[in-house]
C-alpha cells in the first residue's frame, strides 16, 4: 500500500504515456481510416480493392503481432513510435470500416444532387457527405476508442513504459502486491475509458443537428 502511494506519481506518468500512445493511435487511425474509407467507397475500383485487401489483412492480425512486426523492422524507431504505428495500423483498418458504413448510410441521391448543383465529386464528398458521415460515425468511433485505450496495455512489449509496465515495476521490486496493484490499474483504465466516452458523448451532443426527432428518437416536446 505504501509502495503504491509512493509510486503513484509514476503510475500517473504511465497514464500520461498511455494517453500519448492513445492519441497517436487514434489520430493515425483516423487519418488512415478516413482515407481508406473514401477510397473504398468512392475511389477507382482497383485502388479500392487494394485498400480492402490491406484492411482485411490488418484486421486479421492480432495487435500484439503487429507491434512485434513493426518493432523488428530494420529501422531504429523510438518505442513510442513503434507502439503508435503498430496499434495505429490495426486501428486504421477498424476505423475504415466505421467510416465506410457511415459513408454508405448517406444516400447516393445526395451525392448526385450535389453533383447536379455543380459541385465536383471531391467537393460533394467534403461538403455534403463527410459532415453527415462523421456525425453518424461518432458512436461506433467511441467504441473503437474504448477498445484502443485498453490495447495501449500491449505497448509494454516494445519497451513503452505505460500503466501496466509501471505496475510490474512495483510488483517486482516489492516482491508481491499483485492483486492490489492490478486492481488499481483496472480502476485507472476504467476511469480513462469513462472519461474518453463522456467527452465523446458531449461532442456528439454538440454536433447533433436538430430535426424532427431528438437523439433518443423522440419527437421534441412542445414548450
Amino acid at each position: 500500500m505504501e509502495a503504491l502511494l509512493r509510486e503513484l506519481p509514476w503510475l500517473l506518468r504511465g497514464v500520461g504515456v498511455a494517453v500519448e500512445v492513445l492519441a497517436g493511435v487514434m489520430g493515425f487511425g483516423l487519418l488512415g481510416g478516413l482515407g481508406a474509407a473514401v477510397l473504398q467507397a468512392y475511389g477507382p475500383r482497383p485502388l479500392g480493392l487494394l485498400v480492402t485487401a490491406g484492411e482485411r489483412l490488418l484486421r486479421g492480425i492480432p495487435p500484439i503481432v503487429l507491434l512485434l512486426l513493426v518493432f523488428y523492422l530494420p529501422w531504429d524507431l523510438p518505442p513510442l513510435l513503434v507502439a503508435i504505428l503498430g496499434l495505429g495500423l490495426c486501428s486504421a483498418a477498424y476505423q475504415s470500416q466505421i467510416f465506410r458504413t457511415a459513408f454508405r448510410s448517406v444516400s447516393m441521391g445526395e451525392l448526385q444532387a450535389a453533383r447536379a448543383l455543380g459541385l465536383s465529386k471531391t467537393q460533394a464528398i467534403i461538403h455534403v457527405v463527410l459532415p453527415q458521415a462523421v456525425r453518424r460515425a461518432l458512436g461506433p468511433w467511441s467504441n473503437e476508442l474504448s477498445s484502443q485505450i485498453k490495447d495501449t496495455s500491449l505497448a509494454y512489449i516494445v519497451g513503452v513504459v505505460e500503466i501496466l509496465r509501471q505496475a510490474r515495476y512495483i510488483i517486482s521490486y516489492t516482491y508481491g502486491n499483485s492483486l492490489l496493484v492490478f486492481c488499481f490499474c483496472a480502476l485507472l483504465y476504467f476511469l480513462l475509458t469513462r472519461l474518453g466516452n463522456s467527452l465523446l458523448f458531449r461532442l456528439e451532443a454538440r454536433l447533433w443537428v436538430p430535426g424532427f426527432v431528438d437523439r433518443r428518437g423522440h419527437f421534441p416536446t412542445r414548450r
Partner: peptide, 15 residues
C-alpha cells in the same frame, strides 16, 4: 526491470 536484486525500477529510477 523485473529481476531484483539485479535490475528493477523504483520511483522512476533504474536500480
Amino acid at each position: 526491470a523485473a529481476f531484483p536484486p539485479f535490475t528493477w525500477v523504483e520511483e522512476g529510477q533504474f536500480r
